[in-house]
């Protein structure tokens, strides 16, 4: 465990909690892509099946359970409790265009052709693109609430910090996982445009709105 890994995990946790609290406090999921949240719930479910097969540490187990629990709680709030506020018309990204290719790729390119390993690989590939329905929704409506941008920033920062973690682990532990690294780079790159808008607009006190 190095500082990049720990801050990455905490940034990820912060993103998840920010989103849950935003929805809970405002009693509304306006501007949030339910499709992205379903994809994240699917990501955690397929990745953390090793909870049943191997114990790594108390930290590891607790974080996995928190991530999964929060992901399903978020989906529940969007599609059940505050369904009336869900902006389904703007959440029109076709998720099958992500899930099907990602499923095919995880069967083709993986470390080991076993069910758990393929599901883990699927979760890594899917996570890298799971935010696209949310970014698509923002590009469609042309704006995002400031709290939503904080959520996206923490979520993007998490994978960027993991990149530094992998550089660290490569130099000091000789550890690298090519599947995670390539997917992590793709994931981080998808946030670059948003990072730019976040720094140039949101951090200067302006609302994030895209030019028409």
């Amino acid at each position: 465990m190095n500082i990049f890994r720990l801050t990455g995990d905490l940034s990820h946790l912060a993103a998840i909690i920010i989103l849950l609290l935003k929805i809970w406090k405002s009693r509304s999921c306006a501007g949030i892509s339910g499709k992205s949240q379903i994809l994240f719930a699917l990501v955690f479910t397929t990745r953390y099946l090793d909870l049943f097969t191997s114990f790594i540490s108390l930290y590891n187990t607790c974080m996995k359970l928190i991530y999964i629990g929060c992901a399903y709680a978020t989906v529940y709030l969007i599609y059940a409790k505050f369904r009336a506020t869900y902006d389904g018309n703007h959440d029109s990204f076709r998720v099958e265009f992500l899930v099907v290719p990602v499923g095919g790729l995880s069967v083709l390119i993986n470390h080991d052709f076993s069910p758990l390993e393929i599901l883990w690989t699927f979760s890594i590939y899917l996570e890298s693109v799971a935010i696209l329905p949310q970014l698509f929704m923002i590009s469609k409506t042309g704006e995002a609430e400031t709290i939503t941008t904080h959520y996206l920033f923490c979520l993007g920062l998490y994978r960027a910090l993991y990149l530094f973690n992998w550089i660290w682990r490569f130099y000091f532990e000789g550890f690298f996982d090519m599947i995670a690294i390539v997917a992590g780079v793709v994931q981080t790159v998808l946030y670059c445009d948003f990072f730019y808008l976040y720094v140039t607009k949101v951090l200067k006190g302006k609302k994030l709105s895209l030019p028409a």
Binding site: D50, I56, D112, N165, D177, M178
Partner: peptide, 10 residues
């Protein structure tokens, strides 16, 4: 490569 080792990252 970490093939075969338990995955310790989240």
């Amino acid at each position: 490569d970490n093939n075969g080792k338990p995955k310790d990252e989240l």
